[in-house]
Design a protein around this nucleic acid. Sequence first.
DNA 1: GTGGTCTAGACCACC
DNA 2: GTGGTCTAGACCACC
Lengths: 122, 122, 122, 122
Amino acid sequence: MKFDTARPIYLQLVEYFRNQILSGVWQEGKRLPSVRDFALQLQVNPNTVQKALSQLETEGLIMTKRNVGKFVTMQASRIDVRKADQAKQLCLGFVKEMTQLGYTEEEMIHLIKETLHDGNTH
Amino acid sequence: MKFDTARPIYLQLVEYFRNQILSGVWQEGKRLPSVRDFALQLQVNPNTVQKALSQLETEGLIMTKRNVGKFVTMQASRIDVRKADQAKQLCLGFVKEMTQLGYTEEEMIHLIKETLHDGNTH
Amino acid sequence: MKFDTARPIYLQLVEYFRNQILSGVWQEGKRLPSVRDFALQLQVNPNTVQKALSQLETEGLIMTKRNVGKFVTMQASRIDVRKADQAKQLCLGFVKEMTQLGYTEEEMIHLIKETLHDGNTH
Amino acid sequence: MKFDTARPIYLQLVEYFRNQILSGVWQEGKRLPSVRDFALQLQVNPNTVQKALSQLETEGLIMTKRNVGKFVTMQASRIDVRKADQAKQLCLGFVKEMTQLGYTEEEMIHLIKETLHDGNTH
DNA sequence: GTGGTCTAGACCACC
DNA sequence: GTGGTCTAGACCACC
């Protein structure tokens, strides 16, 4: 995994982990690797992993079973709500910035389609 | 003007100034207020204004005439290119994140339209 | 029985067993199920049950008859003293925290009554 | 300040800081000592102080002005709500445990009064 | 082995 | 000077 040096590693981890959960790549109830394993695998300090996972626990996407491990929440509804929230935030931000630049609805939609069909999303 | 205390003020100024230029609110060739006037008006340290304006000069959106003042560039084409770039970046980021969450093209466009017609953009 | 995965299970057992004894649900002299039976019934490791029962024996609420089994103590006075102690500790803690928050005697008593009559205690 | 060695220091700090705010000892808008000063004064590591203050920021009781310092929130209403919440939680816990032990309303209130008039609260 | 806490100390950006 | 991040590494309880 490549980290952007300009932003805190732990925040990039939060975003990565959150995406895995909201997109369903990590399914409800899935057991996560241990903090130490994550740290080895991601080449960062265990404390950094711990900080990211704690934040996701605060957000309710992860739960800890003491002396057992950490798990993706089993409440699918919570995941769905968060996913819809996240999408709404992304849309709001995008629309706000494009509007400020002076783009119209048609232009926005045209540009979005163009972007999707360019194959630059990967 | 309201600043977010969590992010560097100079960056917020860069974004604000850049938006004014790219959206055409500040037209080509427009003379900018002096650094001191900006600082008074925005209630920030003159060094902060200076730092923001320098960055925009590096980006080619502003030019300095020695002993006269600072001006929005007169090269309209440069502004247009930057504006298109900015829009493309916004689209790429938006599409990438929505795709990661698992949204399809139709869903994205539906959500964008919904956002625009909700009146929540302000 | 539901355990809070965030806190040691054995401590939760200690609290549960102690409550059963102090409240009189388990009367003086009552013979307890075997460690193995408890473990099966509570779905925990026998070592965990053992640890909890040992602590209660140290506290004098339980006694072991070798090759026979474990029993609630027959000294009713010991139970009464511990119960009064426990209540006193609860009161002290409660009053201390409420006082720190700035609540007066009248307010505390009013809130307690409100809580009791809300039916939220279960 | 004396720390209970059985519980995490950062949690004890959270509780201490929170109490200072909810009780009004630290008033709305009050600037807190710097993280480093707190650490020196409390004889703990700056990271430990930081962790406690971050949690209070998540709770909305503290806000950070970058490069300036940390401040008690200026939203008095938020403080009031949290204070009422806290009191309700304390009452619920107290009533639940006393009820489990078999105490009646009259007994609880009698014991609370006794505790308050014993002078043992300090 | 699991997560959680804490320290010492370095380094960073911003102002 | 301010807060924020990160690391290396130790130590703990629980199971």
